[in-house]
Simulated scan of single mutants.
Amino acid sequence: MPIKQMGVRMDTESPEYRWRKAQRSSQESLTRLIDMAIENYGYTDLVDAIINDAIKHTKISVNSNEKEIFVDLSKSTDEKLNELGKQLMKESSRRLKKK
């Protein structure tokens, strides 16, 4: 089985870096995270999948009537929309950490 080494750069002030430093084995922990991502989203771009999932479950009120928004961002070239999705993903992640 061929093996490929990959490197990851992280801001040393980021929560992701703090998480990584708390792991006994970064490789084992990242492998388990990848397994969980595959289980939940399959073999697709994780960022797109999470953004799509967040947007699919977004509800808004218009004239006091609740409406659901369904948007597919796969292969989106709109950078502003992509940035908004990334921000939603970070906020969602922070909320999960607080629980």
Rank of each mutant, 00 (worst) to 15 (best):
K97W: 07
F70S: 12
D48L: 08
G85F: 01
S76M: 04
R18L: 13
G42R: 03
E66F: 10
Q23F: 01
L30R: 02
K98L: 12
S93T: 09
I60V: 14
D72W: 10
R95V: 04
D72N: 15
E79M: 11
N65E: 15
T77E: 13
M36E: 15
S76T: 15
R94W: 05
E91W: 11
N82D: 07
A37S: 06
V62W: 12
R95C: 03
S61H: 12
A49W: 02
G85V: 00
D72S: 14
K4I: 04
V47Y: 10
V47D: 08
E39A: 13
I50H: 03
A54Q: 05
D72V: 11
N40K: 12
M36Q: 13
M1W: 00
E83H: 07
K56Y: 10
S25A: 03
D72Q: 11
Q5C: 05
M1N: 08
V8L: 15
P15F: 00
P15R: 13
D78P: 06
I60M: 09
D35A: 14
M1I: 00
H57F: 05
M10I: 03
K21I: 06
M36P: 00
D78K: 10
L30Q: 00
M10E: 03
S93P: 00
T12S: 11
L30V: 06
L30N: 00
S74Q: 11
K80L: 10
R95G: 07
L30T: 01
L33D: 05
L33T: 02
K75W: 07
L81A: 14
K56G: 08
S14M: 02
E39H: 06
Q87M: 13
K98C: 04
K4F: 04
V8W: 00
E79C: 08
N52Y: 00
V47A: 10
S14W: 02
I38K: 07
I69V: 15
I34T: 13
E91D: 14
R20Q: 05
E68Y: 12
M89G: 02
D53L: 11
A54H: 05
T44A: 10
L33G: 03
I3A: 04
D78N: 15
R24H: 07
T44W: 02
K56R: 11
K99L: 07
N82G: 03
